[in-house]
Design a protein around this nucleic acid. Structure first.
Lengths: 255, 255
DNA sequence: CGTCTTTTTGAATACTGTCAATTTAAGTGG
DNA sequence: CCACTTAAATTGACAGTATTCAAAAAGACG
């Protein structure tokens, strides 16, 4: 992974020379439209989105889409690749708050204060749609459909974080990792990939940061699952051999 | 506390006989307008809100404002009292995801799926404004100002949850409780109360659930803070005697 | 092929959880 | 008003899980 540790005031990728000079076709032709912003939108609203012609940006592994504290101008949708978002405390401790896959949105936390509350980094070579927020607001003023979709996106992010809080606050190491793997599995499936066999794009340390445990504990828990014949793991490659067992590991304490 | 354990399908308080037959004056005359929805809104937009005449509802201690899974129709703003929100796993484990004070919003997680992803319960006798969501959406269609305020409210909730995830994922018991107390202190201050002396409305168990620790650990940590001369605690009454020390306890690991 | 990073595994420690007993406060009803 | 009951909070002793520190193994990469 290349060093993405630059000054927080460093220019965002958006203001670097374009790496993708190709014209950005609209949403209506996008292969992700079932997962992304247009999902649930009437045809006429999608046509409106097409008029915005979102710019696309390519990122290399380790490159930041935006930094914490950077001015908020765009929402981003993942077209290709995987991202992580992190927040950091004033003492330097950093925590991963989410992983993002194709069709998912990034940057929603910037709306509140007009600057990003988190940083977002590509975990592999990736491509995003950059959606200018003021323009999106202008469009949504004339479209209750679009307005609803945006509200639902933000609300869904709140619900997602509820789930993570539950994971962090009341589950042990095995339950956390099981929950994480089931979540990844389900998202892979929704994108047309295998639900039982996939490559993790994040390191043990990143999984640990996300789940509130040390990377050694993540590694040990993977080994434990393998011994329980729930999965076969080889570094970043995971094959779930007993999905039901993994689901049971997620809700372990039946009492 | 009276029993609020009713069927999840039980009617919401909103559909019970009104306990507050008084007409609901608009936002422009509300003493909470500096903290609540109208905050940052132009005068003309506030006039528009006034036209909606939000219904007010009173709740007793332990009473639910809405249950998990209940149909989402209203956003709620706290007028008086304190609330907790909880989510529950399928195995019955429950976790507090937030406490809500005057001027704060509740129910934003219902927008995503059209049903509430959490339950919200009054921790003391309380009063709320009930804001019909479809009506609010209609209004915001004609007001970019209102639209922005709603988007910012949701985004702020996302940012708030980031902070809690950091607390749950990478801090020990003392740091968690210190962070919680500093947060309460700051919110009390913003509402014109003392920042150093206040009554907690929630039990040790509810604090523990929120912070991902057992109530015994919460109690022990309160005692430890008292021994460190950071505060004086008598059941629910807290007086912070060393705010700087408490802030240092929050960011303990300097490294 | 050698270096560097990531991952795995082991052993000891520390922190929080669990179980239990006690104290304190708050109601309840005589 | 006081004994009684119930709930919440505190405190102690012990157990268990995850962390810390350390070493080795396995890939990745030039």
């Amino acid at each position: 992974m290349q060093t993405a540790i630059q000054s927080q005031a460093a220019a965002s990728i958006l203001f670097l020379p374009r790496t993708s000079p190709a014209p950005a076709p609209g949403c209506s032709g996008c292969h992700l439209k079932e997962l992304c912003l247009p999902c649930g939108l009437a045809g006429s609203d999608v046509d409106g989105l097409d008029g915005m012609m979102f710019a696309r940006r390519r990122l290399q592994e380790g490159q930041a889409l935006y930094h914490e504290g950077e001015e908020f101008r765009f929402l981003f949708a993942v077209r290709r690749g995987t991202f992580k978002s992190t927040v950091s405390a004033s003492d330097g401790r950093e925590q991963v708050t989410g992983f993002h896959m194709a069709g998912e949105f990034m940057g929603l936390d910037g709306v509140a204060a007009g600057s990003h509350a988190s940083a977002t980094i590509a975990l592999e070579d990736a491509e995003v749609c950059a959606i200018p927020y003021p323009g999106l607001m202008r469009h949504s003023a004339g479209s209750t459909g679009l307005q609803q979709v945006i509200a639902r996106l933000m609300s869904a992010e709140i619900v997602r974080e509820h789930g993570l809080m539950m994971l962090l606050g009341s589950r042990n190491a095995e339950e956390r990792l099981a929950g994480f793997l089931l979540n990844i599995s389900q998202r892979m499936k929704a994108r047309g990939y295998s639900a039982t066999e996939f490559h993790l794009r994040m390191s043990r340390a990143e999984i640990g940061s996300y789940l509130g445990m040390k990377f050694e504990t993540v590694s040990r828990t993977f080994s434990a699952f393998q011994q329980q014949r729930l999965l076969v793991v080889d570094r970043k490659h995971v094959r779930i051999t007993d999905p039901d067992g993994l689901a049971r590991a997620f809700e372990e304490r039946l009492q």
